[in-house]
């Protein structure tokens, strides 16, 4: 038996009826187009993911530019009570309790009524505070050293809107914090009255910055629906710490 010739015949018999479909070339082209499209989609998705990962933090960092000063880090000669909890409050220097009331983070327990309120001016006296001088409200956790409250917080109530305004003055400059409560309060109500507003963020919430009177700067934001905050600071080092002061306001 000639195996080679038998093998040739067997192969010929086996594939005698095999014919390529007429659409073979079109099928191949379609397959190629699908593959190319799949690669393009994959590359596009990968590029979009990389761009999103790379660009979003950059964009956020641009949006969250410090409001009033080139730097937000506190100078070494001044620090908040939060950073030096063991230091007793100095006479005439405003101090603040821990906003969260966690043990070891403040010098005194948080007052039961920490929100601005009418009647008493929205502040509470605390141990160690100088007599006759209003202490720091519980909803303000940071002020630069050298500031003293000039008067109790003022409350203005009218037309469904209640505004609590507290002010401090001293060698570090001046700071004024206003908390506005109104059920219909919107961002436009907090827009600065003068200058071109800029964008910033306070604890992740979008905020508007602008110049304030007396060479000051101001920042305003909606802390939550119906509650807005306007912080103004000027003179001395207070202006440079505007954003840090704003971060410490928790109405």
């Amino acid at each position: 038996m000639d195996l080679e010739s038998e093998l040739r015949k067997a192969m010929a018999e086996r594939v005698a009826e095999a014919t390529a479909p007429d659409s073979l070339a079109a099928d191949v082209k379609r397959r190629h187009r699908r593959r190319a499209a799949r690669i393009r989609v994959t590359v596009g998705a990968a590029a979009a993911a990389v761009a999103a990962i790379a660009l979003v933090p950059t964009y956020q960092s641009f949006r969250a530019t410090p409001a009033g000063a080139p730097g937000t880090a506190a100078p070494p000669d001044r620090a908040s009570v939060l950073r030096q909890p063991e230091r007793p409050p100095a006479r005439g220097v405003p101090t603040s309790p821990s906003p969260s009331g966690r043990p070891g983070t403040g010098t005194s327990p948080k007052p039961p009524d920490a929100r601005p309120s009418g009647g008493t001016g929205g502040h509470t006296a605390r141990p160690g505070a100088p007599g006759g001088v209003p202490a720091l409200p519980g909803w303000v956790s940071y002020l630069p050293r050298g500031l003293t409250a000039t008067a109790p917080c003022a409350v203005a109530d009218g037309a469904g809107r209640k505004t609590t305004t507290c002010a401090w003055r001293g060698s570090a400059g001046w700071v004024e914090i206003a908390v506005v409560r109104d059920s219909g309060l919107g961002p436009e109500d907090l827009a600065p009255m003068r200058g071109v507003p800029g964008h910033a963020s306070v604890r992740g919430m979008p905020a508007l910055t602008a110049d304030a009177p007396d060479s000051g700067r101001q920042i305003s934001w909606l802390a939550r629906p119906g509650v807005g905050v306007v912080v103004k600071a000027g003179g001395g080092t207070a202006r440079n710490e505007l954003l840090r002061i704003a971060e410490g306001v928790r109405p």
């Binding site: 086996r14 594939v15 095999a18 390529a20």
Partner: peptide, 14 residues
């Protein structure tokens, strides 16, 4: 492909 499709398919079949 039109000219050699059948031959290639037969080779592939084998």
């Amino acid at each position: 492909v039109t000219a050699r499709g059948d031959a290639l398919l037969r080779t592939a079949s084998l």
